[in-house]
Every structure is written in structure tokens, then in C-alpha cells.
Simulated assay, not measured.
Amino acid sequence: MNSQNQLERLRTEQAHRTRNIMVAGLVLLLIIIALLFNRYLIKQKTNSKLVANQRELDQKNSFLETLNTEQDKLLKEKEWLLKEVHHRVKNNLQMVTSLLYSQSVYLQDDTAKLAVKDSLRRMQAMALIHQKLYQDDSTSSIAMPEYISELTRYLQESFDDGGQITFRQSIEPLSLDVSQAIPLGLIITESIVNTIKHAFLNGQKGVVSIELHHDGPDYFVLKIADNGIGMPTGLDTKEYNSLGLELMQGLAKQLNGHFTIENRNGVLVTVRFVNLNKHYPETTLPEKIS
């Protein structure tokens, strides 16, 4: 009897143990299923957010593409308008030049004729800049080597000196803003015209050198020199009453630059002015040249 009772008890314990194991396994399985389902829900929620974010990004990208397209269109229209403005300014200057030239034919006074011709050369120096701005890709800056070459060629041809004067140029491959190119072109015009008129007399041959280069990172230097007869001894340039000289001094101030003219085996004109192409922090702007 005892053996039978023990056997029955063992069977009962075994049955309880088996049932507990099954219950524990079922609970574990339910937990795993719940975790998997929760992960599925989280993944679905995340995917929905990603889809919504992607849709929002697509909308923003589409908006940016549209905005960029509109900006490109506006920039092209602006460039076209600027080119058209330069083209019309050039045409207007040429029209005024033609009118002045036609009027000069009827002038009897030699001084008046000379003044009109000098004005024509100044206007041509400005018209040449607007012509280059219209023809080139840039609408705001001028390539100085090409501009100075064309300007000196025009001035030499306008006097028809027969090759009396040789021009030598040493120009750095730099571009200047229109606000600097125009006054600089007028200074070059005045200096070369004065040289052709006064530096070489009686068919004397001579050389005119033109240099434009950086003077450190903050400045440019323009030098125009000839090997002619030079200025009269003892001439005070500050007291000398000359429209061309006053014009060059005023243009140098417009460049925020310093102008000098001196005898040095001929005449040497020097203009040192600020490099506007360099970007300065507000606290490190170069001091104004006096």
C-alpha cells in the first residue's frame, strides 16, 4: 500500500509539474507574441512617420526646385536687362559723340575744337566700358588688360601719330568693378592724351609704359610713364591750372586713391587706390588714402 501511495503521489507531482511547465510555456509564448505584435505596431508607426516625412521632404524639394527655377529665371532676366542698359548707354554715348563730332566740323575756334575732341575721347573711354559689359559674360566687372589695350589703340589711332609713340603695357590679369574701371579709364585717357600732345615734339619718337598691378593685398597701383621732355622745371602742379590735371586728381579721389605726377626722365603719373575686390571685415577696413 505504501509503495502504491508513493507511486500515486509521484504521478500527481509529475502531472502538476507538467501542467506548470505547459502554463509557463504558454505564458512565455503569449509574452513573445505580445512583444512581436508591439514591435510590429511600432514598426508600422515608424514607417508611417517615415512615409509622411518623405512626403513632406518631397514637397519641400519640389518647392525649392520651383523656387530655384524662378530665381534662375529672374537672374537671367536681370542679366539681360543689365546688358540691355549697357548697350543703350553705349549707343547713347556714341550718338552724343557723333553729334559732337558733327558740330566740331563747323567750329572756327581752335581752342573750342580741341576741347570738343578731348571730350570725344573721354566719352569713347566710357562707351568702350559699356560695350565690353554688353559683350562679355560679366555685367559688373571689366577685364583690365583687354580694356586698356583697346583704349590705348583707340587713342593712338585718334591722333594718327604714324607710329611715333610705342606703347608698352604690363597689366596684371585682373578685373575691376565698373565703379573703378570708368574713373581709371578716364585717368589713362587724360594721361595718354597729354603725353601724345606735349611729351614728344617735332616728330620725336618715344615710349609710353602703362603698368597696373597689386600693391599688397589691399591696394592697386597704376603707373603711366613716358621718356619725353617732361614738365617745365619749377612747375607747381598744385597751382597749375589744367582741366586734365584737375580731372585726374578728382578721379583719383573718386577711387579713394592718391594721385601724383612728377618728372622722372619724362613724366610719371602714379595712382594708388583701394582694392574693392578684397572683402574686409568691418573692423579691418583699410584706412582712407589722403
Rank of each mutant, 00 (worst) to 15 (best):
I142T: 07
D118K: 01
L75W: 11
L93M: 07
L133H: 09
K205T: 04
D118A: 00
P286T: 00
S138P: 12
L174D: 03
G203C: 07
K76F: 05
S209M: 01
T111L: 02
L247A: 09
R153N: 15
Q124W: 00
L184Y: 03
I21K: 13
Y219M: 11
E172S: 13
L201G: 05
V207K: 06
A112M: 01
T152K: 01
V85D: 15
G216E: 04
A115S: 09
T270D: 09
P286F: 00
N2Q: 13
K117H: 04
H213E: 06
K117C: 00
Q108S: 08
L245T: 04
Q249A: 12
D236Y: 06
N2D: 14
H87Q: 15
V267I: 08
F273M: 07
V207Y: 05
I21W: 11
R168N: 14
S102I: 05
N265W: 11
S175F: 07
D109V: 01
T46K: 10
E70V: 05
N5C: 04
K278P: 11
Q108T: 10
R11Y: 05
S141W: 03
L93F: 03
L222N: 06
S175I: 03
E282S: 15
L30M: 12
Q164P: 05
P281V: 02
S102V: 03
T139H: 09
G25H: 09
V269D: 11
L151M: 06
H86M: 04
I42P: 05
P217R: 07
A24L: 07
M1E: 13
T152S: 14
G234I: 02
Q108W: 08
P232G: 02
D118Y: 01
K49E: 14
N277A: 15
